[in-house]
Every structure is written in C-alpha cells, then in structure tokens.
C-alpha cells in the first residue's frame, strides 16, 4: 500500500468540500483529486503546509504509512 492520503477523512471531519479547499489553498480541483486518489507521486511542503493550516491538522493526520 505505501503512503495513504487521508485527505477525504479530514475533509469530512471539517465538513469542508474539495472545491472549497482547492480554492483556499490555491490549487486546481483536478490536482486535489489526484492527491485524494493517491495517484500523486509527491507533495510539496508548501502544499502540505497550506492544507494543514486550512484543515487545522498535522501532516500525520493527512499521511499514513500502511504495509
């Protein structure tokens, strides 16, 4: 499995829509969808920081290692 992105879970917890988050942190919905689906190869620290700031969470809440 490798790294699992729990962005969906955090969005549900904060009751926020993907579109809203994408607009706030300044990335496209398409890119946010790639990130949510786990298709992304890497994530920039700046993007991670923006998501954590907006969702008021830690990077560990968004990313999880699974075997």
């Amino acid at each position: 499995m490798g790294i699992v992105v729990n962005l969906d879970v955090m969005l549900a917890k904060r009751k926020m829509k993907s579109k809203e988050l994408a607009e706030t942190i300044g990335i496209t919905e398409a890119n946010l969808s790639i990130l949510k689906s786990g298709k992304a190869k890497a994530i920039r620290f700046s993007t991670l920081e923006a998501i954590c700031k907006e969702l008021e969470c830690q990077p560990g809440d968004l990313l999880e290692y699974s075997e």
Binding site: I27, N31, L32, I34, L35, K39, A40, K41, A42, I43, R44, T47
Partner: peptide, 8 residues
C-alpha cells in the same frame, strides 16, 4: 516529467 506533473 510525469513525476513532476504528479507533484502537487
């Protein structure tokens, strides 16, 4: 290039 395109 593909990896760069998939870096969010």
């Amino acid at each position: 290039q593909n990896e760069n395109d998939l870096t969010i």
